[in-house]
Amino acid sequence: MHQDVALGRLSRVRRPGPLQARLRRGREAVVYGVLLLCALVSVFTTLAIVAALLEEIWAFFDEVSLIEFFTDTQWTPLFRDQHFGVLPLLSATLLMSLGAMLVALPLGLAAAIFLSEYAPAGLRAVVKPVLEVLAGIPTVVYGYFALQFITPEIVRPLFTEAGPFNAASASIAMGIMTLPLVSSLSEDAMRAVPQTLREGAYGLGANRFEVALRVVVPAALSGIMAAAILAASRAIGETMIVTIAAGNMPNLSWNPLEGMQAMTAYIVQVSLGDTPRGTIEYSTIFAVGMLLFLLTLLLNIAAQWLLHRFREVYE
Protein backbone atom coordinates (compact mmCIF):
# COMPACT_ATOMS: atom_id res chain seq x y z
CA MET A 1 0.00 0.00 0.00
CA HIS A 2 2.87 2.30 0.85
CA GLN A 3 4.34 1.68 -2.56
CA ASP A 4 1.21 2.86 -4.32
CA VAL A 5 1.28 6.14 -2.47
CA ALA A 6 4.91 6.72 -3.35
CA LEU A 7 4.38 5.91 -7.02
CA GLY A 8 1.37 8.20 -7.13
CA ARG A 9 3.49 11.09 -5.89
CA LEU A 10 6.36 10.36 -8.27
CA SER A 11 4.15 10.51 -11.37
CA ARG A 12 3.09 14.02 -10.39
CA VAL A 13 6.69 15.35 -10.40
CA ARG A 14 7.36 17.38 -13.54
CA ARG A 15 10.38 16.11 -15.46
CA PRO A 16 12.79 18.74 -16.82
CA GLY A 17 12.77 19.25 -20.59
CA PRO A 18 15.81 18.47 -22.76
CA LEU A 19 16.96 22.10 -22.83
CA GLN A 20 16.86 22.39 -19.05
CA ALA A 21 18.80 19.17 -18.75
CA ARG A 22 21.51 20.50 -21.07
CA LEU A 23 21.72 23.76 -19.15
CA ARG A 24 22.14 21.80 -15.94
CA ARG A 25 24.96 19.76 -17.41
CA GLY A 26 26.58 22.96 -18.67
CA ARG A 27 26.41 24.57 -15.22
CA GLU A 28 27.96 21.46 -13.76
CA ALA A 29 30.90 21.74 -16.18
CA VAL A 30 31.45 25.39 -15.24
CA VAL A 31 31.40 24.57 -11.54
CA TYR A 32 33.90 21.81 -12.17
CA GLY A 33 36.20 24.17 -14.05
CA VAL A 34 36.07 26.91 -11.41
CA LEU A 35 36.72 24.50 -8.57
CA LEU A 36 39.62 22.89 -10.44
CA LEU A 37 41.11 26.32 -11.02
CA CYS A 38 40.92 27.13 -7.33
CA ALA A 39 42.65 23.87 -6.49
CA LEU A 40 45.36 24.55 -9.05
CA VAL A 41 46.10 28.00 -7.61
CA SER A 42 47.86 26.55 -4.59
CA VAL A 43 49.77 24.01 -6.66
CA PHE A 44 50.81 26.73 -9.07
CA THR A 45 51.86 29.03 -6.22
CA THR A 46 54.13 26.39 -4.77
CA LEU A 47 55.74 25.76 -8.13
CA ALA A 48 56.13 29.50 -8.75
CA ILE A 49 57.84 29.96 -5.39
CA VAL A 50 60.27 27.16 -6.15
CA ALA A 51 60.94 28.59 -9.63
CA ALA A 52 61.54 32.11 -8.31
CA LEU A 53 63.86 30.80 -5.63
CA LEU A 54 65.76 28.60 -8.06
CA GLU A 55 66.43 31.43 -10.46
CA GLU A 56 67.84 33.67 -7.77
CA ILE A 57 69.89 31.06 -5.95
CA TRP A 58 71.41 30.06 -9.24
CA ALA A 59 73.13 33.46 -9.25
CA PHE A 60 74.10 33.06 -5.61
CA PHE A 61 75.72 29.65 -5.94
CA ASP A 62 77.61 30.92 -8.98
CA GLU A 63 79.69 33.00 -6.60
CA VAL A 64 79.52 31.04 -3.36
CA SER A 65 80.23 27.33 -3.30
CA LEU A 66 77.87 24.93 -1.55
CA ILE A 67 80.82 23.86 0.59
CA GLU A 68 81.40 27.38 1.82
CA PHE A 69 77.70 27.87 2.36
CA PHE A 70 77.46 24.85 4.64
CA THR A 71 80.86 24.88 6.37
CA ASP A 72 81.89 28.49 6.95
CA THR A 73 81.06 29.48 10.51
CA GLN A 74 80.48 33.15 9.83
CA TRP A 75 77.60 34.88 8.12
CA THR A 76 78.58 38.44 7.22
CA PRO A 77 77.30 39.15 3.71
CA LEU A 78 76.50 42.75 4.62
CA PHE A 79 79.98 43.56 5.92
CA ARG A 80 83.15 44.39 4.02
CA ASP A 81 84.72 41.06 5.04
CA GLN A 82 82.04 38.89 3.45
CA HIS A 83 81.46 35.35 4.72
CA PHE A 84 78.62 33.17 3.49
CA GLY A 85 78.42 30.41 6.09
CA VAL A 86 74.76 29.70 6.82
CA LEU A 87 75.52 27.67 9.97
CA PRO A 88 74.96 30.54 12.45
CA LEU A 89 71.50 31.20 10.99
CA LEU A 90 70.66 27.52 10.67
CA SER A 91 71.78 26.69 14.20
CA ALA A 92 69.84 29.66 15.60
CA THR A 93 66.67 28.52 13.83
CA LEU A 94 67.10 24.93 14.95
CA LEU A 95 68.03 25.85 18.52
CA MET A 96 65.08 28.17 18.98
CA SER A 97 62.67 25.70 17.35
CA LEU A 98 63.97 22.95 19.58
CA GLY A 99 63.45 25.20 22.59
CA ALA A 100 59.93 25.97 21.43
CA MET A 101 59.22 22.24 21.19
CA LEU A 102 60.59 21.69 24.69
CA VAL A 103 57.90 24.10 25.86
CA ALA A 104 55.06 23.13 23.52
CA LEU A 105 55.30 19.33 23.53
CA PRO A 106 55.04 18.54 27.26
CA LEU A 107 52.47 21.26 27.90
CA GLY A 108 50.52 20.53 24.73
CA LEU A 109 50.47 16.80 25.34
CA ALA A 110 49.43 17.27 28.96
CA ALA A 111 46.65 19.61 27.85
CA ALA A 112 45.57 17.09 25.21
CA ILE A 113 45.48 14.26 27.74
CA PHE A 114 43.47 16.44 30.09
CA LEU A 115 41.00 17.48 27.41
CA SER A 116 40.59 14.05 25.89
CA GLU A 117 40.68 11.80 28.97
CA TYR A 118 39.87 13.85 32.05
CA ALA A 119 37.81 16.92 31.27
CA PRO A 120 34.03 16.53 31.45
CA ALA A 121 32.31 17.53 28.21
CA GLY A 122 31.22 20.91 29.58
CA LEU A 123 34.69 21.93 30.65
CA ARG A 124 36.22 20.78 27.38
CA ALA A 125 33.69 22.86 25.46
CA VAL A 126 35.07 25.91 27.26
CA VAL A 127 38.78 25.13 27.54
CA LYS A 128 39.42 23.94 24.00
CA PRO A 129 38.21 27.06 22.17
CA VAL A 130 40.03 29.26 24.69
CA LEU A 131 43.24 27.33 24.08
CA GLU A 132 42.73 27.67 20.35
CA VAL A 133 42.44 31.44 20.73
CA LEU A 134 46.16 31.35 21.48
CA ALA A 135 46.67 30.24 17.89
CA GLY A 136 44.84 33.32 16.67
CA ILE A 137 47.06 35.86 18.41
CA PRO A 138 49.21 37.66 15.81
CA THR A 139 52.82 36.57 16.10
CA VAL A 140 54.00 40.18 16.32
CA VAL A 141 52.12 40.38 19.61
CA TYR A 142 53.97 37.28 20.80
CA GLY A 143 57.19 38.94 19.73
CA TYR A 144 56.59 41.97 21.91
CA PHE A 145 55.30 39.76 24.69
CA ALA A 146 58.64 37.93 24.57
CA LEU A 147 60.69 41.13 24.45
CA GLN A 148 58.73 43.13 27.00
CA PHE A 149 57.61 40.43 29.41
CA ILE A 150 59.34 37.06 29.06
CA THR A 151 62.85 38.52 28.81
CA PRO A 152 62.71 41.08 31.65
CA GLU A 153 60.31 39.23 33.97
CA ILE A 154 61.26 35.59 33.54
CA VAL A 155 64.52 34.95 31.70
CA ARG A 156 66.74 37.74 33.05
CA PRO A 157 65.74 37.42 36.72
CA LEU A 158 66.51 33.70 36.50
CA PHE A 159 69.69 33.99 34.45
CA THR A 160 71.40 37.29 35.04
CA GLU A 161 73.85 36.78 32.20
CA ALA A 162 71.03 36.75 29.63
CA GLY A 163 71.04 39.65 27.21
CA PRO A 164 68.07 41.89 26.33
CA PHE A 165 67.80 39.88 23.14
CA ASN A 166 68.06 36.16 23.72
CA ALA A 167 67.03 32.90 22.11
CA ALA A 168 65.40 31.57 25.27
CA SER A 169 62.58 34.09 25.40
CA ALA A 170 61.89 33.68 21.68
CA SER A 171 61.72 29.90 22.27
CA ILE A 172 59.29 30.28 25.13
CA ALA A 173 57.04 32.59 23.11
CA MET A 174 57.10 30.24 20.12
CA GLY A 175 56.36 27.35 22.48
CA ILE A 176 53.25 29.12 23.73
CA MET A 177 52.29 30.00 20.18
CA THR A 178 52.51 26.40 18.94
CA LEU A 179 50.96 24.90 22.07
CA PRO A 180 47.37 24.99 20.78
CA LEU A 181 48.47 23.30 17.56
CA VAL A 182 50.08 20.47 19.52
CA SER A 183 47.25 20.11 22.01
CA SER A 184 44.46 20.38 19.50
CA LEU A 185 45.85 17.91 16.96
CA SER A 186 47.01 15.50 19.67
CA GLU A 187 43.60 15.65 21.27
CA ASP A 188 41.96 14.87 17.94
CA ALA A 189 44.26 11.88 17.55
CA MET A 190 43.55 10.71 21.08
CA ARG A 191 39.81 11.09 20.75
CA ALA A 192 39.95 9.02 17.58
CA VAL A 193 41.21 6.08 19.66
CA PRO A 194 38.19 3.76 19.91
CA GLN A 195 36.34 3.82 23.22
CA THR A 196 36.46 0.01 23.23
CA LEU A 197 40.25 0.15 23.77
CA ARG A 198 39.76 2.38 26.81
CA GLU A 199 37.07 0.08 28.17
CA GLY A 200 39.38 -2.88 27.64
CA ALA A 201 42.00 -1.23 29.82
CA TYR A 202 39.51 -0.05 32.46
CA GLY A 203 38.17 -3.59 32.56
CA LEU A 204 41.63 -4.79 33.57
CA GLY A 205 41.72 -2.47 36.54
CA ALA A 206 43.58 0.41 34.94
CA ASN A 207 42.97 3.89 36.32
CA ARG A 208 42.48 6.97 34.18
CA PHE A 209 46.15 7.86 34.07
CA GLU A 210 47.20 4.34 33.08
CA VAL A 211 44.55 4.25 30.38
CA ALA A 212 45.73 7.59 29.03
CA LEU A 213 49.43 6.85 29.20
CA ARG A 214 49.58 3.18 28.30
CA VAL A 215 46.72 2.79 25.86
CA VAL A 216 45.48 6.07 24.43
CA VAL A 217 48.80 7.87 23.91
CA PRO A 218 50.55 4.86 22.30
CA ALA A 219 47.56 4.22 20.03
CA ALA A 220 47.51 7.89 19.01
CA LEU A 221 51.28 8.18 18.82
CA SER A 222 51.65 8.74 15.11
CA GLY A 223 49.01 11.46 15.23
CA ILE A 224 50.77 13.06 18.17
CA MET A 225 54.10 12.90 16.35
CA ALA A 226 52.53 14.47 13.29
CA ALA A 227 51.24 17.29 15.50
CA ALA A 228 54.72 17.75 16.94
CA ILE A 229 56.28 17.90 13.49
CA LEU A 230 53.73 20.41 12.23
CA ALA A 231 54.39 22.54 15.30
CA ALA A 232 58.14 22.29 14.71
CA SER A 233 57.72 23.39 11.13
CA ARG A 234 55.62 26.36 12.31
CA ALA A 235 58.41 27.29 14.72
CA ILE A 236 61.10 26.97 12.06
CA GLY A 237 59.18 29.24 9.74
CA GLU A 238 58.21 31.69 12.50
CA THR A 239 59.53 35.17 11.75
CA MET A 240 58.21 38.00 13.91
CA ILE A 241 58.92 36.44 17.30
CA VAL A 242 62.55 35.62 16.55
CA THR A 243 63.14 38.94 14.82
CA ILE A 244 61.81 40.95 17.75
CA ALA A 245 63.00 38.88 20.69
CA ALA A 246 66.22 37.17 19.62
CA GLY A 247 67.99 40.05 17.93
CA ASN A 248 69.68 40.37 14.60
CA MET A 249 73.25 39.29 15.25
CA PRO A 250 74.32 36.12 13.46
CA ASN A 251 75.87 34.08 16.25
CA LEU A 252 77.00 30.48 16.07
CA SER A 253 76.29 29.42 19.62
CA TRP A 254 74.29 26.82 21.49
CA ASN A 255 73.78 29.12 24.46
CA PRO A 256 70.09 30.09 24.50
CA LEU A 257 70.82 33.10 26.71
CA GLU A 258 72.67 34.85 23.90
CA GLY A 259 71.07 36.83 21.12
CA MET A 260 71.13 35.20 17.70
CA GLN A 261 69.66 35.66 14.26
CA ALA A 262 67.31 33.07 12.80
CA MET A 263 67.08 32.44 9.06
CA THR A 264 63.72 34.15 8.85
CA ALA A 265 64.99 37.16 10.80
CA TYR A 266 67.85 37.55 8.34
CA ILE A 267 65.47 37.52 5.40
CA VAL A 268 63.41 40.25 7.07
CA GLN A 269 66.51 42.30 7.77
CA VAL A 270 67.66 42.23 4.15
CA SER A 271 64.30 42.68 2.51
CA LEU A 272 63.48 45.68 4.69
CA GLY A 273 66.94 47.20 4.36
CA ASP A 274 68.48 49.15 1.51
CA THR A 275 70.36 46.27 -0.08
CA PRO A 276 70.12 46.80 -3.85
CA ARG A 277 68.43 44.12 -5.91
CA GLY A 278 70.55 41.94 -8.11
CA THR A 279 73.61 42.01 -5.87
CA ILE A 280 75.11 38.96 -4.22
CA GLU A 281 74.04 40.36 -0.85
CA TYR A 282 70.47 40.47 -2.05
CA SER A 283 70.52 36.97 -3.49
CA THR A 284 71.59 35.54 -0.12
CA ILE A 285 68.02 35.77 1.09
CA PHE A 286 66.92 33.41 -1.64
CA ALA A 287 69.52 30.85 -0.68
CA VAL A 288 68.44 31.10 2.95
CA GLY A 289 64.80 31.07 1.89
CA MET A 290 65.33 27.92 -0.15
CA LEU A 291 66.96 26.16 2.76
CA LEU A 292 64.06 27.19 5.00
CA PHE A 293 61.59 25.96 2.42
CA LEU A 294 63.36 22.61 2.15
CA LEU A 295 63.41 22.21 5.93
CA THR A 296 59.70 22.82 6.38
CA LEU A 297 58.85 20.81 3.28
CA LEU A 298 60.75 17.85 4.68
CA LEU A 299 58.99 18.16 8.02
CA ASN A 300 55.59 18.44 6.36
CA ILE A 301 56.22 15.35 4.27
CA ALA A 302 57.22 13.49 7.41
CA ALA A 303 54.04 14.68 9.13
CA GLN A 304 51.88 13.60 6.19
CA TRP A 305 53.49 10.20 6.20
CA LEU A 306 52.89 9.78 9.92
CA LEU A 307 49.29 10.97 9.69
CA HIS A 308 48.70 8.44 6.94
CA ARG A 309 50.13 5.64 9.06
CA PHE A 310 48.04 6.78 11.99
CA ARG A 311 44.82 6.13 10.08
CA GLU A 312 45.74 2.48 9.67
CA VAL A 313 46.64 1.71 13.23
CA TYR A 314 43.48 0.13 14.59
CA GLU A 315 42.46 -2.23 11.81
Partner: peptide, 17 residues
Protein backbone atom coordinates in the same frame (compact mmCIF):
# COMPACT_ATOMS: atom_id res chain seq x y z
CA UNK B 1 39.73 -2.50 42.58
CA UNK B 2 36.35 -3.85 41.56
CA UNK B 3 37.48 -4.22 37.96
CA UNK B 4 40.63 -6.03 39.03
CA UNK B 5 38.51 -8.69 40.71
CA UNK B 6 35.71 -8.71 38.16
CA UNK B 7 37.19 -8.81 34.68
CA UNK B 8 35.42 -8.16 31.42
CA UNK B 9 35.43 -9.35 27.81
CA UNK B 10 33.66 -7.18 25.28
CA UNK B 11 31.37 -7.61 22.31
CA UNK B 12 33.95 -6.78 19.67
CA UNK B 13 37.45 -8.14 20.24
CA UNK B 14 39.40 -5.10 21.42
CA UNK B 15 43.06 -6.08 21.78
CA UNK B 16 45.39 -3.15 22.28
CA UNK B 17 47.45 -2.30 19.19
Amino acid sequence: DVRRRIGMVFQKPNPFP
